[in-house]
Design a protein around this nucleic acid. Sequence first.
DNA 1: TTCCGGGTTT
DNA 2: AAACCCGGAA
Length: 354
Amino acid sequence: MGLPSDPEALDRLHERLLGWFAEHRRELPWRGSEDEDPYALLVREIMLQQTRMSTALPYYERWLERWPGVEDLAEASEEEVLDAWQGLGYYNRARWLLRTARKIRDEHGGEVPRRLSQLEQLPGVGPYTAAAIASMAFDKPAPAVDGNMARVGARVEGIEGEVTSDKLKREVRTRLGPVFERGRAGRLNEALMELGSLVCTPVDPACEVCPLSPVCTAYQGARVDELGIDRSTPDLSTHAVTALILARNGQVLVHRRDPDGLLGGLWGPPVIEHGDTPPATLAPDLPFAVEVDETEPIGRVEHTFSHKRWQVRALAAEPREEVVTGEAWQWVDPADVDVPTSALDDRVLGLLDG
DNA sequence: TTCCGGGTTT
DNA sequence: AAACCCGGAA
């Protein structure tokens, strides 16, 4: 079982996959356009990391309007880039994309590099994204193993292990290599990812309509439920957090977070993770004295990150001494914030309207 | 309210 | 192996 090794059988399978894709692929704004701008593809693939199509789409379109080419983006500031990324999540991707644009300008003459090894050297471009760009923009025979394709590959080839692990993805890449050598690698990647998304689903896959079922190890061995499964169970611990709302003349004080931490580099009301510690003892964390009104919270917001959950209680507070504004602190209009913020910050600031 | 999906970096 | 976000479905 598994992919055939005979070139002619492989060609037939290749043909069947592309035929399936031609018939079932979802229409997307960029699909169907020949020789697409590799930069646009790069932007899109990075935005689509960990992000749904429907969420990323408006960001993608605004992005290309604002920075139509690599050189335009290379000129942007981190502040502008974070602002355009606002709400998309995983904000390091925005910084990496900016660094990538600058690297392409400085080291590749402004052209997205064509070789897999060069692509993988770009910040934010890992094995998946490099292969996606190399295959779709430059027709290189590189399997782009995302979560969907890892599942398809694990089932077809009967590969045991965590479907999310690097080890399994590497194995899938190796095993699927030969079929990519038959050509049309970009289209083949799209086909396999689409197949994983629409047919070879984690639960109750539609094996009866799958073009790969005749060669699928999992299907033929009745092991579809065992292979291509993600059994990891990361614990989402919950943390009590206090956000301080300091208001003055209709404006609210926001703080620029440390670039390396959670929501790094984004602005928002100061928040402190404190477990059960009362917020009065938290004031020393701020560079100025405050008086916190603990009698009645302005509101509560729950926010889930990849690895933890915050239960945020927003308390009104007043500064007791001069607040020095600048790189780290700013007064903003909560209805019209002009610094980059996250979805969490937007919701906390939204408590003030509603 | 909980569950779930989705790549790269360190 | 852990850190990093958000929103849509169940």
